[in-house]
Amino acid sequence: MFKIEDLNVSYGEQAVLKGLSQTFHLGEIHGILGMNGAGKTTFFNTLYQNIIPRSGLMSMGEKALKREDIAFLETQNYFYPYLKGREYLELLTLNKPHFNIQEWNEIFQLPLEELIDNYSTGMKKQLAFIGMLSSNRPIFILDEPFNGVDVENNEKIYQILLRLKKGGKIILLSSHIISSLTSICDKISYLSEGKITHVYGKESFNELELQIKNLVKNKIDQKLDTLL
């Protein structure tokens, strides 16, 4: 079990996460949903300890959460220039002889002998995803893993995440597309103004979709009436 309690993060005077608390269970896929600027990426970066929180506790079982507990796939993956896909993966698996690059790539069929600079956005995402898998840590955090990835490869990512879940991993993922979360997550937390305002179980995903639709509709309906 991985737990966060009363997490507070600020950028200068601006509070981004405000007393955020949540528990994540082993073998669970947990979606984090929120509008742009709600604090999703800050939340993930804080868990990964890229950002130091002002206050709060983060624990994994009985121990404090460590960076080494987490495999993190960021929204924007930065690749060292002029490296080939294979070289990137070889670097990530230097100390992991169990990880077979060739076999994993049979799933995604990436041109590993090509320079990464020539990859499409989706291919880069898949490459970073394979790299993340190599770390085999108890918690997987995926920030917008489906961005730019085509339908077939999205499905491959789904299937792999389901296998990881079966293996007892904790998976946190965010997406701007609500359907990509509802189709795979066990729970979805709605993050708004730095707090998790509601946690939806599978049975209430329809309610969540409807709520978001109505929220957006109410926001823009009046304006659209005057424009269109």
Binding site: Y82, L83, E87, E90, L91, L94, E114, L115, N118
Partner: peptide, 23 residues
């Protein structure tokens, strides 16, 4: 032109050299 060479003689963890020589 990007220099898509193998450069396999250079160890994988000397990635700065692989990248730098190509660039």
């Amino acid at each position: 032109r990007a220099g898509n060479w193998s450069l396999s003689a250079i160890p994988v963890n000397a990635f700065e050299w692989k990248s730098g020589l190509r660039k």
